[in-house]
Simulated assay, not measured.
Amino acid sequence: MQNPLPLMLEPAPLSRDILCTFPAVGTVLTMVIDQGQEKLGIKFIQCYRWMKFINIRFEVHAALWHAVLTPSSKLCYLPDDDYSVMHRQRIHEERIPTQYGRLPFTCFPWPSRITETSHPDVNSVTLMDVLTYPEVTYKFKCVVRVVALAPWRPEDFRSPSGVYRMQLTLEDPTARIHAFLFDTDGDKFFENCESVDALAKMRDVLLGVNRDPTGEYATRNPPWIQCCLKSYYLDSNDVWGSRTYGMFDTTCVC
C-alpha cells in the first residue's frame, strides 16, 4: 500500500485524446529515449508511419516492460507495401472480427477457470477499449491479470462494519488500471471464500504467487481471468476527470 505499482512508466498520465489514437488490440510498449539519441533523429520522427527499430534492449521497471534505445540502435521507415507491414496488417484485420480478437495471445486457448462472470456470452474487450470508450459510464467484460491488490492482508479486505473495500490493479497487453471491489460486488466475488484462510488462498491464486519450502514467496505469475468492469464518475462537475472503475458480477470459483 505504501509503494503501489504504477499504472504507467510516464511521469504523468497520458490524456484521453492521446490514448484514443492508440490501437485497441496489441501490445503497447513504452520506449525510453534519452538525450544521447539525437543522432537517430528522434525529434524528427513522423507520426503514423511504419518504422523498424533494430538493436533494442528490453527491461522491466516496476513490473512493466519497456524498450530502451542503445548506442547501436537504428531505425528506418518502412513503406506501406513492405511485406512485414502487410503481414502484420493482415493478421490484425483477421483477428479483430473474431470472437477471440480481444483476448491476449498468452491466454490462448482460454483464460484460467478460477473466475466466472454472470455474462458468459458477452465478448471481451481490452483495457484500452475501456479507457477510450466514448461514454463515461458503461459496462465491459475483460480478460486481465491481477498484479496487485490493497489492502494485502485478508483480514483487512472488509471494513470494521463488514463491507468489502479493496483496490485491484489490473493489466492486459494494452493498459493497466485500478478497479475497486466494493460492498455487494465483493460479497459476490468472494462468495466461495468465507474464512480468512480461504481468502488468503484465493489472494495467492489471483496474484499467481508460489511459496518455497520455507513458506516464503518465491515466484509470481498472475493467471489471466475473466471479469466484468463498470466505469462511473465520482464528481458530477468533472465526470471525465473523476472517472473510476469497479469490478462486478464476477465470482471466484477455485
Rank of each mutant, 00 (worst) to 15 (best):
Q2H: 12
N3W: 06
N3H: 09
P4I: 03
P4F: 04
L7V: 01
L7N: 09
M8T: 10
M8I: 00
E10V: 07
E10A: 14
I18L: 14
I18G: 00
C20S: 15
A24H: 08
G26E: 03
T27Q: 13
T27F: 02
L29P: 04
L29Q: 11
M31A: 13
D34P: 02
Q35T: 09
I42L: 09
F44D: 14
I45W: 12
R49H: 13
M51W: 04
F53I: 10
F53G: 08
I54D: 11
R57C: 10
F58N: 03
H61R: 15
A63K: 13
L64W: 06
V68L: 12
S73C: 08
K74G: 14
K74R: 15
Y77L: 13
L78K: 11
P79S: 12
D80T: 13
D82R: 10
M86L: 15
R90D: 11
P97G: 07
P104R: 06
C107S: 14
W110H: 14
I114P: 07
I114F: 02
T115K: 05
T115M: 06
S118P: 00
S118F: 06
S118N: 15
P120L: 05
D121C: 08
V122H: 06
V122K: 11
S124D: 12
V125I: 12
V125E: 03
T126P: 04
L127P: 05
L131F: 01
Y133F: 15
P134N: 10
Y138F: 12
R145F: 02
L149Q: 13
L149W: 08
L149P: 05
A150S: 15
W152E: 11
F157T: 04
P160K: 09
G162V: 08
P173V: 04
P173F: 04
T174I: 07
R176L: 03
I177S: 06
A179K: 06
L181R: 01
F182D: 03
T184D: 11
T184G: 00
D185Q: 09
G186H: 04
D187H: 06
D187G: 02
F189G: 07
F190Y: 11
E191C: 14
E191T: 08
C193F: 06
E194T: 10
V196E: 09
D197V: 06
M202G: 01
M202N: 01
R203D: 02
V205W: 00
V205P: 00
N210H: 12
R211T: 04
P213K: 09
P213H: 05
G215H: 07
E216Q: 14
E216M: 05
Y217Q: 08
A218N: 10
P223A: 04
Q226S: 12
K230P: 02
S231E: 03
S231R: 04
Y232Q: 03
L234K: 14
D238I: 00
V239W: 00
W240E: 14
S242C: 05
R243W: 02
T244P: 01
Y245D: 02
Y245F: 15
Y245A: 01
T250Q: 03
T250S: 07
C252T: 05
V253K: 05
